[in-house]
Design a protein around this nucleic acid. Structure first.
Lengths: 318, 318
DNA sequence: CTGTTAGCGATACAAGTGTATTTTTTCCTT
DNA sequence: AAGGAAAAAATACACTTGTATCGCTAACAG
């Protein structure tokens, strides 16, 4: 019902608002008066412009705030690099901060033209990062999915994530047109072995950059909550020794895939291939994810880590 | 209170503030509490971070708001392009809006690598634009002064402008090490004819982009207020038919240099050479500048115009 | 030792902002 | 044409921000 609250949400209007507010520093009531609309409209419009990523705040050296944590992470886990943003300790979803940190990391690399193809999975973190990215036109770049998608139309579906990121960057994209999990191991193997899938997965494995996310086994994980096949529960996985997932594959505390059918029904780049990839970064934060992250970093599954200060402290604490 | 709190205006502190405020959306009091400083400090720090250009708001398609005005300016004055920002009609100095517009224009071109060298003069507008620019590293780029500088240490002195812009862009720069006006015509001619000056001016004339500003004859013009030689007054110039200046040279209502000694005592690229330059843009706004701008555009002294909506309307009104 | 001054913290307050609630308008249906 | 639903406007209010003011303290010169 409450679908289109702000009706006059044309880009032109929003750009006007943004200009008058952020560039000229006019007050919302002044703008409302000048444009002949209500202050409410202005207020909502400005919010909308930010939410849509039409205006972004860029920061000169965003990672200057946590230099020490970054250095200690690199040292401790033998990483190539680490980037840590500052979390809002009040809000319980650290996605905001990590998303922004991931975006700044991507901006750096994109400015250097460091990657010809980028592999992504899914999740709120990436979704947030996309919005914080500056729109570009990079027709040479290709965004590839590292993993299948869910059937249900979740907004952070892999298909959507790859498409949105590609659109933001003016790049091409390709996905793995399959569910994350097949009903049976046989079906998954058959599909993965077929020509087009084989080639697509290979393309994913050859991406210049892979952006990984991870989830734990709690209800806070979207994969656990909505993405698991009907016949598998989080309890099953915990009993089999899992602490969380990477690319839909469930890993134990040492970062090894657990011995459970679900790991053989998955469609995506196998975790075992990650160490051979060119550049793999893990973007994850939240106290509940600390064990999973530590497992994955310990197993050498990522070259770089992007997280927030709270998570970084916890990772270093043990 | 914690021990190692960075309580000065260090970049690290400001970046922390900016991150917590703009990325995490925390309130100023929350930030103050978390960092163990007073809210006042946070408030001022955030302002400082903006003023220093440490955080910038970028906007997706900044010139979408005034498409029609731009088209009409191009049509009316036979320009290659026009960019118009939205002025705050309350504030009487339009420098904010034009500065931002100029910055967006430069961002466009810099992203395309459109220029190998950029010529600048001086003024508040350019100063504002520099702060709104994203820092870069373009060691191949050279910023050159199109004009001499003032003796007094005005902060928008040409020398400073060229140096600041170059620093922001990570570029080299060179200036015309002379005052704008010499005491006598003979001195000016002698200097301009000397080898190093001759070469420097030639380099300026060959710049890929020239950014011009202009002033009228009122007290609002910094050149008139502080930059004129002691023996010349604005009244003299007005009597000689001047309506304003371009590169320190005073022009009449048709855009022709007036016949007055001051125009022969100036150190800089002669206005007459502008039409032969590759790309010349005039960045100027304000109702009081309308006659000068119109004169200059009428005489074909610029290929492009960067201004604000108020000025654009007035230019088109006549 | 004392008076002066610069700077910071505390307090206060006016203005600005984000959101919830109620009223009005508009437009569609019957 | 009347009734009803949905959108926009008006109203209200709690909270946030920016700035002015006062008073304390510490540094410093005489």
């Amino acid at each position: 019902m409450a679908s289109g609250i702000v009706s006059e949400d044309s880009e032109e209007f929003l750009v006007q608002l943004a200009w008058l507010y952020f560039v000229d520093g006019m007050t919302q009531s002044e703008i409302a008066e000048r444009l002949g609309v209500t202050r409410l409209r202005v207020n909502r419009g400005i919010g909308l412009a930010r939410a849509r990523g039409l205006v972004r705040v860029e920061m000169a050296s965003p990672f200057a705030a946590a230099l020490d944590l970054q250095a200690r992470l690199v040292e401790r886990f033998g990483l190539r690099f680490a980037r840590v943003g500052l979390a809002d300790r009040g809000a319980d979803d650290g996605h905001q901060a990590v998303g922004a940190a991931l975006a700044y990391f991507l901006e750096e690399g994109l400015a250097r033209n460091a990657w010809g193809s980028i592999g992504v999975s899914w999740g709120l973190t990436i979704e947030n990062a996309i919005r914080a990215l500056k729109p570009r036109s990079l027709p040479e770049l290709e965004v590839v999915s590292l993993i299948g998608g869910t059937v249900s139309g979740l907004r952070f579906n892999t298909f959507g994530v790859a498409a949105n990121l590609a659109q933001r960057l003016g790049a091409r994209h390709s996905v793995l047109p399959a569910p994350i999990y097949f009903e049976t191991q046989a079906m998954a193997e058959a599909v993965m072995a077929s020509r087009p899938f084989h080639e697509q997965i290979r393309k994913a494995e050859e991406a210049d950059l892979a952006i990984l996310v991870t989830g734990d086994l709690s209800d806070r994980s979207f994969l656990v909550r909505d993405g698991l096949p009907a016949d598998v529960t989080a309890e099953d996985l915990a009993r089999a020794g899992a602490v969380g997932d990477l690319l839909g594959q469930f890993l134990d505390a040492e970062g090894r895939p657990i011995d459970h059918p679900i790991n053989r029904r998955v469609v995506g780049v196998p975790v075992a291939r990650l160490p051979a990839m060119r550049e793999v970064v893990l973007a994850a934060a939240g106290p509940h994810k600390v064990p999973v992250i530590r497992a994955q970093l310990g197993a050498g599954l990522a070259h770089g880590l992007i997280t927030d200060d709270v998570t970084a402290e916890l990772l270093l604490a043990a």
